[in-house]
Every structure is written in structure tokens, then in C-alpha cells.
Design a protein around this nucleic acid. Structure first.
Lengths: 143, 143
DNA sequence: CACAGTACTGAGACCTGGTATCATTTCGCC
DNA sequence: GGCGAAATGATACCAGGTCTCAGTACTGTG
């Protein structure tokens, strides 16, 4: 098996700060991996019986800090979570099916950097979220 | 007086949908205008005595819908509000002083449009927020 | 293996931001 | 002035999230 296993990096990332990859943590990570869309905390909790609500919150917070999962803010302000690719990326959120696609697009980052520089800002981070309808939903119900 | 008064447009915008520019609404709008940074709901409420909490929430929601104010999501997820310019714009949020600057930068929008098109997305909207330190704060405490 | 120390957990109380309800008030218009 | 719609304030309520705490699981050291 040469395929990288997510647990592997999760475990080592946690270990690096004296944390452990426990059963509940593994379960939350797997639940997010199984899902075919972003989940709310509530949905994660339902997908993970035998794990307390507080633990789900704690775990999600921890995984966020470690960059193992990613918070997605929908257009209406509600938040959901998806497993993250470690690289810098942005999200496209489909209002039809709720799917979230990650994308990278250097021109956007480049434009942002240029702007910040010319305005004298020192960037520490940025968030870009796109809202609309994906190929699938457009094909299903074209205007 | 040729200078456009915000109340003017607010009143007409409201009237367009059968709404009224009442005392509490004017007060909320003015409180946001007086502030030199984005306010939380709580701060708005404190700045506006004699207005009920529920009314503040209702008013903010309404003003948002009308585009008269703008929601700003901070890096930690908390939300604040600033009076909006009616044009499409993005935000730069300073982690030092909390100031929010609006900016327009066509290259960013252009890059986003290009990306969406090539991926087959139908865009309905997008959010871009930049986080970092502004000129002032950099000057005050340079690294 | 025993033991000590730390990380972690579940249950539930709690806190906080926001909404729903409803009787009352305000405003625009006739 | 009087009518009806819009708006309001008080308050009860709900949901998302945190805190506390007693107990459990794991790690490593002798």
C-alpha cells in the first residue's frame, strides 16, 4: 500500500502537539470522509453514535486548528465542514445540490497579493467563496 | 445642498417596498455611520437606547436585504456590520485595529469570472475577505 | 506489571446570539 | 379624526456552542 492514508497524517499531526488520534476523533474524520458533501455539526454527531456532542464540537475545533478539515460558510451564513486538502484553496458552493468543490486558481491569489501590496496591507490570510450552480445542477434544470 | 444624504436613499429604498424609515431604523443607521469601525449587534444596541433588542435584529436584517449595510465576517467567525457603499466591493479587515476598508479590484472579479466559466459554474455571488494588518498598524508596531 | 500523570471523554448545565409571538403603538392616507 | 398596514418592545423561546467535572484511556517510567 503506497496510497497515503489520511489517518496516518492525522495521527502524526496530532502527535506533534502531544495529542492522540482517539476513537472518537477517527470516527469524526471518517464520517466527514464518507459524506459526499459538507456536514453540519449536527449531521456529524448523528453519523457518529456513541460520541458526545461536546466531543464532536471539541474535535471539530481541534481538526480545524490542525488544518485537517475546513470550515465552509454558506451564503445564508450557516457553517459546514469538509475534509481539507492541506494546500491553500478556495471553495465553490453549489446552491442547487449543496456540493462543495475545492479549487486553486493562482490568478486570484495573485490579484489579491497585488492589491494588498499596493494598498500597504500586510496580508495574513484571505477567504474566497463562490456561490452558484454547478455543472450538474445546470444540466438537470437548465434555465 | 447637493450632497446626497444617506437618509434620503434609505427612505426611498424602504418606500419602494412599502416600508417606512422610522425612528429606530434611522437610529441604527446613524449609529453605524457614527462608528469608526464595524459594530456587533450588541454594540449597535448599546448605541441605540430606547430601541428593543428584537428591533435591532429585525432592522439589521432588513437593512442587509436592502443593501444599505454590509455584513463583515471576521477571521474568527464573528460577524459585524458596516454601512455599505451600494457598489460591489470586498473587505480588508485589520487584525490590529479592527478597521474595515472596502475596496474594489476588477482583476479579482475578473479572475473569479474566468475561473467559474472554465469550470462550468453559474455564479450567483462571491465573497472575498482579506485579513491582515493595515498601514497604520504596521507603522505603529513594525516587525 | 504497577503506578503516576496527562490527554481525553460524556453528560449535562449553562451561556449567547438570534427568532417567534403578541399585544400595543405609530404612521400614511383618506 | 379615523382606519388599516407596518412597525415596535417585551418576553418567551430555540439552537449552536462552551464549560465543568467526575471518570476513563492511554503513555511512559521504574
Amino acid at each position: 500500500m503506497t496510497r497515503p492514508r489520511p489517518e496516518r497524517s492525522a495521527a502524526s499531526q496530532l502527535a506533534a502537539s502531544g495529542r492522540r488520534l482517539t476513537t472518537p476523533r477517527k470516527a469524526v474524520l471518517e464520517a466527514l470522509g464518507r459524506a459526499d458533501g459538507p456536514l453540519t455539526i449536527e449531521e456529524i454527531w448523528e453519523a457518529v453514535p456513541d460520541v458526545g456532542r461536546a466531543t464532536v464540537f471539541r474535535t471539530v475545533k481541534l481538526l480545524l486548528e490542525l488544518g485537517l478539515i475546513c470550515r465552509v460558510v454558506l451564503e445564508n451564513g450557516s457553517v459546514r465542514y469538509v475534509p481539507a486538502t492541506p494546500d491553500h484553496h478556495h471553495h465553490f458552493i453549489c446552491s442547487g445540490c449543496g456540493a462543495v468543490e475545492e479549487f486553486q486558481h493562482p490568478p486570484i491569489d495573485e490579484a489579491i497579493r497585488t492589491l494588498a501590496e499596493s494598498a500597504g496591507f500586510e496580508l495574513s490570510g484571505h477567504a474566497v467563496e463562490l456561490y452558484g450552480r454547478c455543472r450538474h445542477c445546470r444540466a438537470a434544470t437548465p434555465d
